[in-house]
Amino acid sequence: MVPFNYIIVLSAFMFFCGVFGVLFRRNIIAILMSVELMLNSVNLLFIGASKVVGNLDGQIMVFFIITVAACEAAVGLAMVIAIFRKFGSIDTDKLRVLRG
C-alpha cells in the first residue's frame, strides 16, 4: 500500500482545488461545492491518519464532519434561494449591498 505521504498530497490537492474555486468562481452554488470539496479533503486526511496510528477516532471525526457538512449544505442552499429571491441572481458581483 502507498505511504501516507501520497494521501496527504492528494488531500492537499483537493483542498487546493477548493480554495481555487472559492477564490475565483462567481457562482454561489459553485462556491458551496468548492467548500464541500475542501471538507472532503479533510475527511480523506482523517481516514488516512486513523490508518496510520491504528485508532478509530479519526473515522468517528469523519462522521461529525459529514454531519456539519450536511448542515452547512442545507443552510447554505437555503441562503442561496433567499439571495436569488432578493436579487434575482446568484452572481457574487450582484451582491454589493450589505443592508437588507
Binding site: 501516507f4 505521504n5 501520497y6 496527504i8 498530497v9 496510520v52
Partner: peptide
C-alpha cells in the same frame, strides 16, 4: 512530503 521520510500505513 515527496522528498521527506515515508510515513507507512498499517498493513
Amino acid at each position: 512530503l515527496l522528498l521527506g521520510e515515508r510515513i507507512e500505513l498499517l498493513p
